[in-house]
Simulated scan of single mutants.
Amino acid sequence: MFCLLAAFALLCLAMERHHEEALGQAPSPRRQRALRGLAVLALLASAWALPARADWGLAWAAWFAQLSPAALFATLLATWWPRYLPAGATGSALVAVLLGVLAF
């Protein structure tokens, strides 16, 4: 869930409008590509945890069920509290890494 939230927050920050509202300036094309690439990596990292479940059907269903709340929360941050969007992306990524380390 936290990887998905980080991915959607990074995708929001890759958009000029949200980046400008959150950070006060438009992103450079290089930064946009980097943010999109990090978002893809976060999505892949969230799917990486799927093989830990025994039943693939339930694992994919749970992954898709977590997509909607993560996207909703990132959208709420980008819409009403854009200054907290970078902190939300960073915090959720750190929590995801911490939970991943603790799982091993």
Rank of each mutant, 00 (worst) to 15 (best):
R36H: 14
E21M: 12
A47D: 04
R30V: 11
V40W: 09
G24S: 04
A26Y: 08
P29D: 11
S46H: 04
A42T: 01
L43W: 04
P29N: 07
P29R: 11
R33P: 08
L43N: 03
L10N: 09
L38Q: 14
R30S: 10
Q32C: 13
R33K: 15
S46F: 03
A42Y: 00
L13F: 09
L38D: 13
A22W: 00
R30G: 09
E20R: 14
E21F: 03
H18C: 08
L43G: 03
L44S: 06
L44W: 04
S46C: 08
E21R: 15
A47P: 02
L23D: 00
V40Q: 07
H19L: 11
A22Y: 01
A39C: 02
A14S: 14
L44M: 09
L38I: 04
R30T: 15
M15H: 09
A34Y: 08
A45C: 07
E16A: 14
A26D: 07
A39P: 00
H18E: 14
A47K: 03
A26N: 04
L23N: 02
A34T: 10
H19K: 10
H19P: 07
A26G: 07
P29G: 05
A42K: 01
P27K: 04
R36E: 14
L44N: 00
L38F: 15
L38A: 15
L41C: 10
A42V: 01
V40T: 06
L11D: 07
L38V: 07
M15W: 05
L43E: 02
P27V: 07
A14F: 04
P27W: 06
L11P: 00
L13Y: 02
L41A: 14
A39T: 02
S28H: 06
H19D: 06
L43V: 04
H18R: 13
L38H: 05
E16G: 13
A47S: 11
R17F: 07
G37K: 09
P29E: 09
E20N: 11
A42N: 01
S46T: 04
A39K: 01
Q32P: 09
L23A: 03
R33Q: 13
P27T: 09
G37R: 10
A39Y: 00
A26E: 06
